[in-house]
Every structure is written in C-alpha cells, then in structure tokens.
C-alpha cells in the first residue's frame, strides 16, 4: 500500500471514528457539573470504612485492587519483554563503559550540575520513601513514590558515571526488587484468602485514622508496588544504558548476513 493510499484510508477511517466520538462526547454532561454516585459514595465513606484519608490510594489498592494487580503484572511483563529484546547477542562485544562512542562526543560534566545532583540525591531518596509510606494519608502511593525513587537512580548516573549506577543500584538488586514487589502483591491477595474472605480483601487490622499504621493491606500494597515500580524503572534504565555505553557491534561479521 503506497503512502498516499495509507493517508486516504486513514482520513476515511478517522472521519468515521470522529463521527462516533462526537456523538459520544455530545452525550456527556457538561464539564465540571456531574458527580457520579460511586465517587460520592467513596469520598464520603472511605474515612469511616477503611480509616484512610486518601481516597485515590484506597481505590487503587482496596476497592479496585484487582485492576492494580493486572496493571502491575503488565508492568512486569513489559520489563521482561524489554530485557528479553535487549539480551546479549552473539555478534556483539562488551567493552568497558565509555561515554565516548563512534561519532558521539562525550560532554564533560559541569561542576554545578554535579554539586546540585549530589546535594539532591539524599533528600530525593527520603522524599520518595516518604511518598510511598504516606500513600494512604496524602497524595502519593506506591506508583508515585516508585517513579521518584527510580529518578534518584537516574540522578546518580547523571552526577557520576555508569559504574556509579552499577555499584549503587545494581541490575540484580533492581530485578530482585521488581520480582519481590510483583510477588508480594500476589501474597497480599492470598492473605485475604487465608483470612477467610475474598482475594485481595482488606483483612489486616485497620488501625487509627490519620496515623501511618492504618488502612490494613493498603500500606502493604503501597510498599510492594513501590518496590515493583522502582525495580522496573531502574532495570529499564540499566538495559538502555548498557546498550548505549557497553555493547558494541563486532567488527568482523560472523556467519552470512
């Protein structure tokens, strides 16, 4: 199919989809005026029923915990897929990591960037942990804290070099964290089964509203998802950095290509 034909087919299909989409959007209530009954119910009763003040995190880990289970396994599968795609190939060489590549000029790191980076790593790490831990009390949770912690690993690479990242957040630790997080969420679900209730039901003691130890399995969910997301993103960074800095194509082609 030539490029022109592709565009024409796209325009025809887009017009069809646009017609249906406009019909659907016209049926929606006007912006900012509608409140769904489910949302109103959750907003008003979560503090009483689950002793947490963060409705979003309670929804993610308790009311809609199965959806999060599926998403977390999706995350796991995507990282496994990327690791599989970027695995060692026979005709590739591994050399010591260097920023200088063929046709690529290494930019020397300015001391200002290095200073700010080093100063910010510690506070950012604690901040990420705090977001994970206080997920059920204020805006935050496993997913947000996980990405913040992964960005701390990125800052570590930025102010140092690849070896800094290899030593402070090695690939093995990232994979371990990711697997523990994914399996931990499944274990949390079976706690419900052991407790005589449904899978992923909140069976741990609920504690007192407003304290860290509240919400039952919600805090457990925050921690496992935080581990999983941090491990997943750090593993992805390792994979791509490894490809760029360490892997080189072999000079002599072996076999017929």
């Amino acid at each position: 199919m030539s490029e022109r034909t592709r565009r024409i087919v796209f325009v025809v299909a887009a017009l069809g989809v646009a017609a249906i989409l406009l019909w659907a959007l016209a049926g929606l209530p006007s912006f900012g005026s509608h409140e769904s009954a489910y949302a109103r119910l959750l907003n008003s009763t979560t503090a009483k029923r689950r002793h947490v003040t963060d409705v979003v995190t309670a929804t993610v880990f308790d009311y809609r915990g199965v959806d999060t289970f599926g998403e977390e396994l999706l995350l796991f599968a995507a990282v496994v897929g990327a690791t599989l795609l970027l695995r060692e190939q026979r005709e590739e060489l591994h050399e010591p990591p260097s920023d200088q590549g063929l046709g690529r000029v290494a930019v020397s790191m300015s001391s200002a960037v290095r200073l700010v980076g080093v100063a910010i790593i510690g506070p950012a790490f604690v901040f990420g942990l705090s977001i994970v831990a206080h997920g059920h009390l204020s805006p935050g949770g496993g997913f947000q804290g996980g990405v913040v912690l992964a960005s701390v690993a990125l800052i570590a690479y930025l102010v140092g070099e690849y070896r800094t990242l290899e030593r402070s957040a090695p690939f093995a630790v990232a994979e371990l964290s990711e697997g523990t997080g994914a399996a931990g969420y499944a274990v949390m679900g079976t706690l419900g089964l052991i407790g005589g209730a449904a899978f992923l039901q909140n069976v741990l003691p609920l504690g007192q509203l407003g304290t860290l130890a509240s919400g039952g399995t919600i805090l457990f969910g925050d921690v496992t998802v935080g581990l999983a997301v941090t491990g997943a993103l750090v593993a992805l960074f390792h994979e791509f950095l490894h490809q760029t800095l360490v892997v080189r194509r072999a000079r002599a082609k072996r076999g017929s290509r």
Partner: peptide, 28 residues
C-alpha cells in the same frame, strides 16, 4: 482533590475512581 487529611469528607471532592485508573495507567 479527594484527600481528606485536613478537610472533612463532607466537602465536595472530584472523582477519585478515575484518578485511580489513570494513575496506574500513566506508569504502566
């Protein structure tokens, strides 16, 4: 926003369910 650590749950808040859906979706 649907966070009630400093407000009473009686105040009108936006929908927390769609936020939960989009939250996981962004990272994944």
């Amino acid at each position: 926003a649907p966070f009630f650590s400093d407000r009473s749950p009686k105040k009108p808040a936006v929908d927390g369910v769609v936020q939960a859906l989009v939250l996981t979706d962004v990272v994944v």
